[in-house]
Design a protein around this nucleic acid. Structure first.
Lengths: 119, 119
DNA sequence: TGTTTATTTGAACATTTGTTCAAATATTTA
DNA sequence: TAAATATTTGAACAAATGTTCAAATAAACA
């Protein structure tokens, strides 16, 4: 992680005060990983399309496949990841499974970036 | 992408109206990829720590390395990615390079999730 | 000018990730 | 009960990613 030898950064820290105060204001490790995980889940086109679609409508796997233009299997694999992290939920109706957003904050997060990008 | 053979989804679409209207409300392909790219950049612990730190303070590479607990080289590689996508900017002062957030919207986005996760 | 130091860069490498394909489940319907 | 259909799952595989190490730059200073 650190390299103390000659050609890279002789000293570990340039401004100790700033480093300490910055570090003190960072979220805890757990929360940082949790934030990164959430962003990572949104940071892949197939999954993001699924989320964007589910923000509009509750949809079954077959229709999510059509909307997102991915195979049913690929969509199902990605749905599992989103489900595991509680970003989406599902309900069964016969042999169909309907997915929807489980975390309202995600809607805000996605819509906020959407508006920023579209402007 | 699609599989029309027997064991998977006999029909391509279950609810045509819903699929069409959902698709109509999705952002354009370009914007979806741009959104995903932004989320992806935030979705990796090293980069997210860098961003969280820069939200607090302008910092040089050496200090970013200390705050984020990563090697200088690893940090520098990640800074390049963030720079390329205009999430951060830099200014040179002698042999030091100071980085800071270039996109105010990113602050909001990150802070919004931070508050949600910390609550 | 030559040395020191902060940063960048490229190659190598292991790890992670997303897709496909085939097969397994589960539910409905004939 | 058997056939059909929506979804899930696991293995395999290629592609993408993040880190390290060593070397290259670039600026300051002796």
């Amino acid at each position: 992680m650190k390299n103390k030898s000659a050609p890279v950064c002789k000293v570990d820290i340039i401004d100790k005060v700033k480093v300490k105060s910055t570090q003190a204001n960072l979220p805890g490790k757990e929360n940082i990983f949790s934030m990164a995980e959430t962003f990572k889940l949104l940071g892949e086109p197939t999954r993001l399309k699924i989320i964007l679609a589910l923000i509009e409508n509750e949809l079954c796997v077959c229709d999510l496949s059509a909307v997102s233009e991915n195979s049913v299997s690929a969509v199902s694999h990605q749905l599992r990841l989103l489900r595991n992290f509680r970003l989406i939920k599902y309900r069964k109706e016969g042999k169909m499974v309907y997915y929807s957003i489980d975390d309202e904050h995600i809607k805000n997060l996605v819509n906020q970036l959407k508006e920023h990008i579209e402007e």
